[in-house]
Amino acid sequence: MPGIGAGGSGPTSDPPGSDTFSKREMKRLLQNFAFTSGALLTVALIFVALAAPLLAPFDPDAQDTSRRLEAPSTQHLLGLDDLGRDVLSRIVFGARVSLRVGFSVVVIGSLIGVALGAMAGYFGGAWDVTIMRICDILLAFPGILLAIALVAVLGPSLNNVILALAAINWVGYARLVRGQVLKVREMEYVTAAKALGARSPRVITRHVLPNVINPVIVMATLGLAGAILAEAALSFLGLGVQPPTPSWGAMLTSGRQYLGIANHLAIFPGAAIMLAVMGLNFLGDGLIDALDPKYRKRME
């Protein structure tokens, strides 16, 4: 697996940790349709979340019960919900919830996963056996089911959703990083660093991790999409973010009760989820395509 900045050369020829993203690789990335469209959608999502108070035409919690379930109009572009709240404003603010959950889960999950995976791969022995057995058990347990179980006992809330999703999310990173570390730790530069007296934490953070981080970035991008989808699913089941906080999944659930009467309540939040997830999936796919020449060649 070439490093992001390895410029196609193996990790042995480039000093680890000093990689820079080459212009050629950047150009290749930008020419990749999946990557560019995914990146655009993702940037748009982040922008909407950050600028929500500026972009939302109305207060997302302001109710006008006399106009409940009103269809989209020029005043309310995506219509009003069952309590007479502006759907567009709630979707705009809902982006914040989705991204907050997504980023928190990915950051917590990847930090724990990378640390444990690196330890398992680098030290081997009892560390490896213990960490990998825990991974096996968690992987044998269907992810969303474990999240549902955890939220069911901890109680539905935004923080518990993050906790539950991070609890299942780190396993993927741990396994991935362990596999990569097993390969990298046999490299000559690692042996050289050890011979020069570098301690394990330094070898891992300065020499091993920079060379295994590439697939982690791809996994994190796809993991972000997965976390957003999982949050929406939990909220849809009534186990996620609680009202009146606007969450796309919860909006979809309440919209489901009005199918046939006010279809816009189910259609628009769902479209928002799909666009966000699709953008991130495109981005992740584009990254795999662009950064893994073997995969690209295979498909040409």
Binding site: L252, T253, G255, R256, L259, A266, I267, M274
Partner: peptide
């Protein structure tokens, strides 16, 4: 394939209901 992976079932389901049941 990309759309299918990204489309949440809890959205696709209601869309099917609107189209083919309502």
């Amino acid at each position: 394939a990309l759309v299918g992976v990204s489309m949440p079932s809890f959205w696709f389901g209601p869309l099917l209901i609107i189209a083919f049941a309502i």
